[in-house]
Design a protein around this nucleic acid. Sequence first.
DNA 1: ATTATAAATGAACGAACATTCATTTATATT
DNA 2: AATATAAATGAATGTTCGTTCATTTATAAT
Lengths: 196, 196
Amino acid sequence: MRTRDEGKEQLIKEHSIKMIVKKGLDGFSIQNLAKAAKVSPATIYIYYKDKEDLIVTIGAEVFEEVLSHSLKNFTPDMSFAEGLKVQWKNRADYFMSHPVKVQFIEQLRYSQLYVKIGKKIAPDFKIAMSQFAHKAMANKELVKLPFEVYWSIAFAPLYQLIKFHSEGKSYVNEQFQLTDKEMNQSLKLVLKALKP
Amino acid sequence: MRTRDEGKEQLIKEHSIKMIVKKGLDGFSIQNLAKAAKVSPATIYIYYKDKEDLIVTIGAEVFEEVLSHSLKNFTPDMSFAEGLKVQWKNRADYFMSHPVKVQFIEQLRYSQLYVKIGKKIAPDFKIAMSQFAHKAMANKELVKLPFEVYWSIAFAPLYQLIKFHSEGKSYVNEQFQLTDKEMNQSLKLVLKALKP
DNA sequence: ATTATAAATGAACGAACATTCATTTATATT
DNA sequence: AATATAAATGAATGTTCGTTCATTTATAAT
């Protein structure tokens, strides 16, 4: 039997991400993807059941990539401040080296497919995130809070900064670049908020 | 000459918002909108130049609605803590009474049309937001920060909480409801972070 | 009452869409 | 070398899309 050309699958993935970020989920078509990836439209259906399956599958993959990257050099025995810092740094590093992938998942986060993607994500990460927060609360390194409140304070600012950076500007300034300076400034404030 | 039926325009707007939230920008078509709003597809083109113009125009309108609502009972002479509290409360109130509209603009914020919508927003709000922050910094009620860092800490957590509430759950919990308790808890932490 | 004019319409347009099908191609197994 | 099989394809399928057009309808102005 003929073997799968893994290069083709890779091209399909890369161009899917690139095209969705550039044109949006509307404006993204299988026929254009086929042209860009230089394969037949029919080839795409060898690798994915249909268009939704393609987006959800690739979305979940990239999502897991971000999450696993965010736990690099992270150990459960770290102090809360250290642990949060490592996670911020990891997420920021990943964004700086893979900005298009991050824009891709941010777009999916606000799409109707997000629920289906969420169901595909391995529970390991969710458990690790949750345990880290609860341990820190038990140790009185972190104010006692519902997980959602903790998460919103701890990470939403980082993602908003990344969004400002992607757009290259904000509501009031025509130019914005996220550098270590703003990162550290923000993380310091977040820690100040969350420390008891 | 025949006069415009304002009811029709209203129906077009309402169903556009509802359909985009339900089906996404992909999955939103003029022909389905026409059916839902019980008008001819051609009628839609009397009110809007094309599909993009419809989305951008309605998007900018709803956006301004949110922004103007967020400045209710807000005066520039308020203290930073008071001012931020009023803005949080207003945004939360607006969300609780118009959840679909908020989901609509949140979706647009992460779409490719956001740049075009941003250009349609009256600059008044941007100026007011900026002045409020700068005045508070001058008065030493607020840490001196780049606007983007301030904004990310001050408001991104609120929007993330609203998102958790819309989804009805978060990464780790199967159930989540945003109530005054979580709101006040979060606002308190944000103020703690931002006060010098 | 008549006229002028813009609103409103249903049907129609070609283009683009997701997906399938009949055929060819490459390779692992025999 | 021959065979079996899944990969890969270009062309075709029927459907849905955004938009336009010829016609009718409602109303303000005459």
